[in-house]
Design a protein around this nucleic acid. Sequence first.
DNA 1: CAATAAACGAGACGGTACGTCCCGTCTTCAG
DNA 2: CTGAAGACGGGACGTACCGTCTCGTTTATTG
Lengths: 194, 194, 194, 194
Amino acid sequence: MARPRSSDAHARILAATSELLEQTAVSELCIEEIAARAKVGKQTIYKWWAGKGELAMEAALANVEAHVHVEDTGDTRRDLQSFLKKSARLLRETSTGRTLTALMAQAQGDPEFLEDFRERFLEVRRGALRTLLRGGLKTGQLRRDFDLELFIDLVFGAYWYRMLTRRAPLDDRFAAELLEMLWPFVAARKKAAA
Amino acid sequence: MARPRSSDAHARILAATSELLEQTAVSELCIEEIAARAKVGKQTIYKWWAGKGELAMEAALANVEAHVHVEDTGDTRRDLQSFLKKSARLLRETSTGRTLTALMAQAQGDPEFLEDFRERFLEVRRGALRTLLRGGLKTGQLRRDFDLELFIDLVFGAYWYRMLTRRAPLDDRFAAELLEMLWPFVAARKKAAA
Amino acid sequence: MARPRSSDAHARILAATSELLEQTAVSELCIEEIAARAKVGKQTIYKWWAGKGELAMEAALANVEAHVHVEDTGDTRRDLQSFLKKSARLLRETSTGRTLTALMAQAQGDPEFLEDFRERFLEVRRGALRTLLRGGLKTGQLRRDFDLELFIDLVFGAYWYRMLTRRAPLDDRFAAELLEMLWPFVAARKKAAA
Amino acid sequence: MARPRSSDAHARILAATSELLEQTAVSELCIEEIAARAKVGKQTIYKWWAGKGELAMEAALANVEAHVHVEDTGDTRRDLQSFLKKSARLLRETSTGRTLTALMAQAQGDPEFLEDFRERFLEVRRGALRTLLRGGLKTGQLRRDFDLELFIDLVFGAYWYRMLTRRAPLDDRFAAELLEMLWPFVAARKKAAA
DNA sequence: CAATAAACGAGACGGTACGTCCCGTCTTCAG
DNA sequence: CTGAAGACGGGACGTACCGTCTCGTTTATTG
């Protein structure tokens, strides 16, 4: 019976938020500025989002493709390499990187936010990698006796550590070196097979 | 020629800050509350620290022993294990962990802060591990052909990833598993030598 | 198109200001206390008044009847006496007197405030007296050859001098003596007419 | 045995105060700026004066000759005219005028200050005028039947009113007109005697 | 197709904390 | 011991945003 939600306003709010999120921490987002940029009343924001956290999360993840497409060429090493390079590419794109680090930062002081962030981003990425690795296990390209989750921690840990500390670039070379370093450990011993 | 800085006030300010820092993000520290707790005028805080960042950094690092003592028993594996366990212990102590994640979060929106954090904490830890590993290289307990810095990224990456995402506890078991997973890769191949 | 100004808050602010103004100088008004007493955010005050001056002026003059009713019985001496007594009564009422001296004091260090005060209070009173005297001139009850403005200066000068220096009470007796002293000078010489 | 008070510092403090007093209200004097200008420690000021009031009073009155010299030529009208002109001259000199209005303003919110101001300035001037008028009474140049104090109120009232309201200049012409207006009232009726 | 009821833009409101200014007191050292 | 220097605890300043609350306007049904 009533006027329906304006998807236009909705979009403008998310756009304004994303824009600001590339430059500032979530907690330093200024709702009044978002409203002004989006030409929206403040109430319209509070109507649909509980606070900066929710808003930032939605704005940020709208820009990161929700589902990670994992190739499955049958060659686990190649697929893994491809995944690592794509991940590096995603993260090093400045705006995405800045935004993700902003989310991770926000999560440190806000347990609910962290929970949300894990479900909607971190676990999705872990899941993708896990699927990939399980494929390798099935085809016998990977050893059976290593802790898969710990391995995933190592991979994403290295990525996040570099991203958060700006220690070194997240480029293809890094992805390659990482694979080179870790591969021998997870790869099935071909020679033993031979 | 004037009255000297009050070391007492200085200490009270840092103590109040540490206390609050265990519960809140750096950017949500309330200077007025710090001043009130420390029974200090706000100006005394602004006189000596440029803002919440500087204050939080000093308060946090005052509680983390600046120098990491690295044992050198001659047995690199044992020393490494010991280092990893001590590190895990430091980080999982609630107050320290919370504080460090707060610093890392703050660093994400504040490049100068990050720079400072790297110099005063991250690089100190990296340096300790680097020294330890170089010892192993000298004594031939470690292979020569691996990228030392990348290895350090992997180690600290795993720690920070777990701490920041609260994915799993940073306990001695984690330290043990981590070593078990990574050791084969860096250890010199004794059997090959044999 | 937005929510309209709250006349309630407006009134509470003026009331709180008036209250404080009876006891303190304009420059010593504490905006924070006004806000607290009026149960109002400070910003609401700053939104509508530029500072203590404007606020005090409005609060003070709201309590002083803007227009002075000047009687016109046809008997100039009687009207003048009545005006002088009413003026004395107004000023010696403690709260009004304190408030007006506070405004006059403020005006000394603030030219714009003085200008405003003259227009909104001093000139209104002068105007009333001027009208009264001109009536007397028309009906021939007053001499034509005296400087009307100088006379007005003398009258109000005496009032303000006594009020500001607390030299003596501003009572009806004072008003009577003042008239008695000044009347002969402005009155038309009836005997000459006779 | 002790170092004596530095009359130099004392003078520099008063000088700095006078300087600032020409531009600002007493309550807006900034002790820290006075100390800086006078190259003096704040404590040295607090040591010798209780606050801005006392300091301003001393600084201001040091610049106004304490004793008013009243001429006595034997001609009361001439002496009165001379007194009025000298008074006008004193007050219209910008720095003195500003300073005196600042004192009068301060007195409005500070009873002790008012008391002091009356004793040290207002009553001195009243006394001078009173002496002058009594001389005229003795020599029969003035009527006996008028209220001397009320007359003094009228004179000083007119001066202060003009000065405080900046209504019109305090020039010699004003002094002349004032005398012309008031003289007939206080002068003995010579013609009646004749 | 008018009435109606939610969604909207605007922005005023009560409030919290900010970083600054200055207060009056204190603590040091130089002369 | 006086006096310059200036650190200290404290209080108010005027500003920036917060999240809530009215307003009048717009707009897609529903009666």
